[in-house]
């Protein structure tokens, strides 16, 4: 280590402090000597997320499910609409998840169904979050009459029974190939008020914070305050509600498909698979348990990931998880 301690008048502090991080072989300059290595915010978030064991495990599971559904479907030698000679076969090496009564490989169908469920869920989450965040932020920021009108509309939408409305609207759409997309839109149109409420609540308290006043004192316009200052600050609650939405969307889609208004055959989804298997629970249980297990796996892992993300993203969070 270079001895950079000056002989002259740096006072007792400069002499007393010996570089405790002296192991680093960097030939540091005089003022570099005592600087602590700066950690970037991204790395901090990553560290905090990685400390959340359950979230990390869930992320691994979720990535595995996604890979299984999307990459697996291209690799697996059966497809979800391909009939095989093995009819109602229990799980085996040839058909790890078994087959159904028409001889279609269940693993191929689960892959396809997972794809559909994930696509719908992510679309719903994205659309509902964007709409809900902007809507809630505007309502909360302006308050007053506009807020009242906007939130009464939200209350109105929230009174719609999701499944019933989606079922009716879904029935109108019919069985076109892109029907999963319409289901996504319908579900998003019914769930964004949840996000809007969360965001509005946070914005109502945030807008009174001094930094918002400071931003205004700097000449920031409303748009800048809403999107530059308020929205980034509500990301914590929004991320949590996104994960809840994803889980809820998967369950809604499952429910819709189960009662026959969601994804239609020949396409398939996890909910459809479960509903098709309801008569076979006792005789061919694999038809029921494999898609059901995937639903639980996806929903649970997303919830835990959301939990970890919330803790990691919140820069004001100082609590250290052990």
């Amino acid at each position: 280590m270079p001895s950079t301690q000056p002989e002259e008048d740096h006072g007792p502090r400069a002499v007393r402090v010996t570089p405790t991080r002296g192991v680093s072989a960097r030939p540091a300059g005089q003022d570099r000597e005592f600087t602590v290595e700066a950690r970037s915010q991204g790395r901090l978030i990553l560290r905090r997320f990685l400390r959340h064991k359950l979230a990390v495990a869930s992320l691994v599971v979720f990535v595995a499910v996604v890979l299984f559904a999307f990459a697996g479907a291209t690799l697996w030698h059966y497809s979800y609409d391909q009939l095989t000679p093995d009819i109602s076969a229990p799980p085996s090496l040839r058909h790890p998840f078994g087959t159904d009564s028409t001889g279609i490989d269940l693993m191929a169908m689960v892959m396809r169904g997972t794809q559909r469920s994930l696509e719908i869920a992510l679309f719903v989450a994205l659309a509902a979050t964007c709409v809900g965040t902007v809507y809630g932020a505007i309502a909360g920021y302006y308050r007053g009459v506009s807020d009242t009108l906007m939130m009464r509309f939200v209350d109105l939408v929230l009174t719609f029974p999701t499944i019933a409305v989606a079922a009716i609207l879904g029935a109108q759409v019919g069985t076109s190939a892109g029907s999963w997309f319409f289901i996504g839109i319908i579900l998003a149109a019914l769930t964004w008020p949840i996000v809007a409420r969360v965001v509005r609540g946070s914005v109502l308290s945030l807008r009174e914070k001094e930094f918002i006043e400071a931003a205004r004192a700097l000449g920031a316009r409303d748009r800048r305050i809403i999107f530059g200052h308020l929205v980034p600050n509500v990301m914590g609650p929004v991320i949590v509600s996104v994960t809840i939405l994803v889980a809820a969307a998967i369950l809604s889609e499952t429910g819709l498909s189960f009662i026959g208004f969601g994804v239609r055959p020949p396409d398939t989804s996890l909910g459809l698979l479960v509903s098709q298997a309801q008569t076979a629970v006792s005789t061919r249980p694999w038809l029921f348990y494999f898609p059901g297990a995937f639903i639980i796996l996806i929903v649970l892992s997303i919830n835990f990931i959301g939990d970890g993300l919330r803790d990691a993203f919140d820069p004001t969070q100082t609590r250290v998880r052990s």
Binding site: E210, E213, A214, A215, R216, A217, G219, N233
Partner: peptide, 19 residues
């Protein structure tokens, strides 16, 4: 505001945006 007249607030803990 900000360009001709600027303001410094009392509490630096709350007058900076935490994110």
């Amino acid at each position: 505001r900000g360009s001709k007249i600027a303001m410094i607030f009392q509490d630096p803990m709350t007058s900076l945006n935490p994110v």
